[in-house]
Simulated assay, not measured.
Amino acid sequence: MKTEIYLRPLTVEDATISSKWRNDPKIWVFTKFVSSGYITSEMERQWILDRINRENEKRFAICLKINNQYIGNIQLLNITTESAEFHLFIGERQFWGKGVGYCASILLLKYAFYNLDLNCIFLEVHADNLAAFSIYKKVGFKPITQSGNFIRMGIDAKSLKGITLTT
């Protein structure tokens, strides 16, 4: 059975849940993010508050359609008139491997290309993060370069043509 999801804007109220994810080292194994210590709910709240209204960032919560449960984040950062940087993580580990990352990626890319009228999206993925790499390839991202453990990938608006998603 497919896990049906939707995206909604990230809010400061999400900090209570997302602060727990920030303190789960398994979520951050393959990222450049390294916490310098325990992240409290208030620290996370302030972090979200500082970012949700930035003009060059669009941050979304990934939620389950069945019960509105908040299970992860997906975002576009460093948005310009042409491009943006893509970030994704599923904080609720029981939803890893359930197609959530793929569905969320398609939804965000459609938003980026059709609503924001961007031409290309880039991301960096750890070379050992085979699950994420697989999602990104399935969506249409192509490897561009590799620097150390990280592979830079990109996708342009034409790559989404023909990909359908019913959520």
Rank of each mutant, 00 (worst) to 15 (best):
K20I: 14
I163T: 12
T164P: 01
K142I: 12
N129C: 07
E57D: 13
L107F: 10
N73R: 11
Q69F: 05
M43N: 09
Q94I: 15
L118Q: 03
Y38N: 11
K2R: 13
I90E: 03
Y111Q: 01
R8S: 10
E4P: 05
E44S: 13
C63Y: 02
T166Q: 09
N67W: 07
T40V: 04
E55G: 08
K26R: 14
N56V: 09
L118Y: 01
A15R: 00
F141A: 06
A132T: 02
P9K: 14
L7M: 08
L118K: 03
C103D: 12
R45Q: 11
K158H: 07
P25Q: 11
A84C: 09
E42V: 08
D24L: 09
E92I: 04
V139Y: 01
D156R: 07
V125F: 11
N149S: 15
T3M: 13
L165Y: 07
E4T: 13
K110N: 15
T167Y: 03
E13G: 09
G154D: 10
K137Q: 14
W96M: 05
Q146P: 06
G99V: 04
G148L: 08
K158Y: 08
T167V: 14
A157N: 09
N149M: 06
L109S: 01
I74E: 00
W96L: 06
E92R: 05
K58G: 00
F95K: 03
Y136Q: 00
T166W: 07
Y70R: 11
M153C: 06
N78H: 15
N78Y: 13
I17T: 15
I144V: 14
F150Y: 15
F122R: 13
T31P: 02
H87G: 15
I74V: 15
E124T: 10
F86N: 00
F89V: 02
S35N: 14
F133P: 04
L77C: 12
H87I: 12
A132I: 08
I27D: 07
I48S: 03
S147I: 14
I66C: 12
T81N: 14
N53T: 05
F33Y: 13
F122C: 05
N78S: 15
L10H: 01
T3R: 13
T80I: 03
G154A: 14
V12Q: 09
L165T: 03
A61R: 00
T16W: 03
R54G: 12
Y114I: 13
T166L: 09
D24K: 13
N23H: 10
I17H: 02
Y6A: 04
D50A: 10
Y102P: 01
T164C: 07
N115W: 08
R93Q: 15
I135P: 03
S147M: 10
N129D: 13
C120T: 12
A112D: 02
T145D: 14
I151E: 05
I163D: 02
V34S: 13
G72E: 01
K98G: 08
F60E: 05
V100L: 05
L118G: 02
R8N: 07
T11I: 01
F122M: 09
T145C: 08
Y111N: 00
I62K: 03
